[in-house]
């Protein structure tokens, strides 16, 4: 028979694991409900669910949960000031996560590509951000926290220009103020 404190610890770990799994299933359910009915009320429900004490452990343990948390954080901010959310048009967690990953990549694409033949790819990235209606809130948050820019201010400035040239002057101004 093991030491009582060791057995107690193993029991505790098992309980945490089960609670995390329960939390993960609940989060996915709430988030997919929001994706299919993207109202402010529904993202608030997701956000409230994310206040569960086990959320942080789950965030640190499961990569897909970390990504859902991250997307939800951005969406909450977008909806709070009336922007169409990053996840618009997605219906599953995988689709939403892929949209997020794609946006992160598109925001970086202009770096490292300088040859003539790359210009089309850069134009595609700019067109993606404009045509998908990626909000200045998402652009700012992703540049600041996800896209791993060495020089975030420079990147923000680049995207301000892109928004401005696309006629989205208010979005460009808002992005500039968020630096």
């Amino acid at each position: 028979m093991g030491k009582p404190d060791t057995l107690e610890h193993i029991k505790k770990i098992n309980e945490i694991r089960l609670r995390m799994e329960e939390y993960n299933a609940g989060l996915i359910e709430h988030f997919e409900f929001f994706l299919n009915d993207p109202s402010k009320d529904n993202i608030v429900k997701v956000y409230e669910f994310m206040q569960d004490p086990v959320a942080s452990s789950s965030n640190n343990t499961y990569r897909h949960i970390r990504l859902i948390h991250r997307v939800a954080e951005i969406v909450v901010k977008e909806l709070s000031i009336g922007y169409i959310p990053l996840t618009n048009g997605t219906h599953t967690c995988k689709e939403a996560i892929d949209r997020f990953r794609m946006t992160v990549f598109m925001l970086r694409r202009h770096e490292f590509m300088s040859e003539e033949s790359d210009m089309e790819l850069i134009a595609d990235a700019e067109s993606y951000v404009i045509s998908q209606g990626i909000s200045p809130v998402a652009i700012h948050d992703i540049i600041a926290d996800d896209a791993c820019f060495g020089d975030a201010a420079r990147a923000v400035s680049y995207w301000m220009d892109v928004l401005d040239k696309a006629g989205k002057k208010t979005d460009a101004l808002l992005l500039g103020r968020m630096i």
Binding site: D98, R101, M102, V104, F105, M106, R108, R109, F112, M113, D118, L121, D124, A147, C148
Partner: peptide, 18 residues
Amino acid sequence: WITYNFRLPAVYDPYKLE
């Protein structure tokens, strides 16, 4: 390495940074 990955077809775009 970065540039060549960036040039790969769009189907890989969401995963290129990782």
